[in-house]
């Protein structure tokens, strides 16, 4: 293909300040790194459908030749024989993920509305504390958190995973930044009409920040979906899907096929959610900037 037909494929027009040669080189760079990003994922997907002989072929291949669902059947057979049924692990993960995600959206938006639209004693310092907490990771607080959980008696319950995730600071930050662009007039008008603050939050502000809901979901969901219970959960019947699947892949060579099926199940759900919510997420991120 010539350069011209390539530009036709990607519908690149001669734009302001753009030379075609540099554009071509940059897109080439993008394509090369795109492959670097995509190949491991493509490989993970293909592996799940490979029959045994293809999994161990030498030299190794990325793509599958004779796709089969055997790995998935093996997975269910394996989990059917285990002491805790697979459905239990799935239920645990669903409870943690759904309660954690929806709870987070609800709590973070309730806290974001006053911060975004009103000034009151303490509002500034609260927001700067949240911004500061973006600057360190959860590992810093791991030890006192464990003591807190044990003091609350939440060790070995799902609460120990769900509750801390409800107050994830990034969610409040993004929600607050997004709410700031709701016109003040809208809030004022509702107030003049006699709506209480709770009603303004629920009926005026919340419907207007739907893109931000989806963004918080896409940040929170993969985190909880991938949670293995950490140090908090030790009863087998409370453990998550991720933990169960990790145990299977720990079987090594003998479980390579099943392990690949597991990896596919774990990655498909968050990626699908992102495909659905992509445009809303980008819309929210446009307001994510930090003020100077």
């Amino acid at each position: 293909m010539t350069l011209n037909s390539w530009t036709a494929v990607f519908r690149i027009q001669k734009k302001l300040n753009r030379s075609l040669t540099v554009s071509f080189l940059l897109f080439l760079l993008l394509a090369v790194f795109g492959l670097f990003m995509a190949i491991p994922l493509v490989y993970a997907v293909n592996n799940a459908f490979k029959p045994l002989d293809e999994l161990f072929i030498f030299p190794p291949r990325v793509m599958v030749n004779n796709p089969t669902l055997d790995n998935f059947f093996d997975l269910f057979a394996l989990m059917g024989n285990s002491w805790v049924p697979l459905s239990r692990y799935i239920a645990n993960t669903l409870v943690i993920t759904l309660v954690g995600t929806f709870g987070h959206i609800l709590l973070a938006s309730a806290a974001a509305y006053p911060l975004a639209k009103h000034k009151f004693p303490g509002s500034q310092i609260i927001f700067s504390t949240v911004v500061l907490s973006l600057m360190f990771s959860g590992t810093v607080t791991a030890i006192p958190n464990y003591m807190m959980m044990s003091w609350l008696g939440w060790i070995n319950t799902h609460l120990s995973i769900i509750v801390p995730s409800l107050a994830f600071p990034l969610g409040l930050f993004l929600m607050k930044q997004f709410m700031e662009q709701i016109p003040d007039a809208l809030v004022e008008a509702a107030k003049i009409d006699g709506a209480s603050e709770y009603r303004i939050y629920w009926q005026i502000v919340m419907p207007n920040v739907k893109p931000a809901w989806l963004t918080l979901m896409i940040l929170q969901f993969p985190m909880l979906w991938g949670s293995d219970g950490g140090n908090f959960i030790y009863s087998e019947n409370l453990k998550t899907l991720h933990y169960a699947l990790g145990q299977i892949s720990a079987g090594g060579i003998a479980r390579a096929g099943v392990g690949a099926a597991v990896a596919l199940i774990l990655m498909v759900v968050p990626i699908t959610l992102f495909i659905i919510s992509q445009s809303s997420v980008i819309q929210t991120m446009a307001t994510s900037g930090m003020k100077e």
Partner: peptide
Amino acid sequence: LIFYAPSIAGNVYFI
């Protein structure tokens, strides 16, 4: 999607 997917694909890095 291609560039963002690895960061949300869970523990697929064991690939």
